[in-house]
């Protein structure tokens, strides 16, 4: 335990609170991932961990190192920006892949998948 003792009390309590909040949100998100019934509901679950959870833990990390080294340590902002920008991209790609697969197999899913209006506009039909 190097450094943890040097932290002033207010910072230690704030870091502890943010850590618990962030990891709790992440855990809730993955519990949702494990419990939801259909794929389209599950897509919503990881965003809980990547927005609230990652945000709280990264702020905790920034606060901890800034107070400890008594200078602003802001490089965690990079991870924040990166996670915020990339997670929507992957989830969007996954949702599109899922709806494409569901439509080509005609299963439709359990939640009233809308019809393929405008899908056959040449975007996906290039390979056939």
């Amino acid at each position: 335990m190097n450094g943890l003792e040097d932290l002033p009390a207010w910072a230690a309590l704030l870091v502890a609170f943010l850590l618990l909040l962030g990891s709790g949100l992440t855990l809730l998100g993955t519990i949702g991932l494990a419990r939801f019934k259909t794929f389209y509901e599950r897509v919503h679950a990881p965003t809980l961990g990547t927005t609230g959870g990652a945000g709280a833990i990264l702020i905790a990390s920034m606060l901890f190192f800034s107070v400890l080294q008594s200078r602003p340590v802001l490089h965690e902002v990079l991870i924040t920006v990166f996670v915020v920008v990339t997670t929507p991209v992957t989830l969007m790609l996954l949702a599109r892949a899922a709806i494409y697969r569901d439509r080509t197999e005609g299963t439709g899913g359990a939640s009233g998948l809308p019809g393929d209006e405008g899908v056959n506009d040449g975007e996906h039909t290039g390979r056939e």
Binding site: M1, A16, F17, L19, S23, G24, L27, G29, T30
Partner: peptide, 22 residues
């Protein structure tokens, strides 16, 4: 406050491991 920080670190690591298990 150091004790609280150490315990909450432990708790949040356990929660993250549980999240990885899910």
């Amino acid at each position: 406050s150091t004790t609280i920080l150490i315990w909450s670190l432990m708790a949040s690591q356990l929660m993250l491991v549980a999240a990885m298990a899910c």
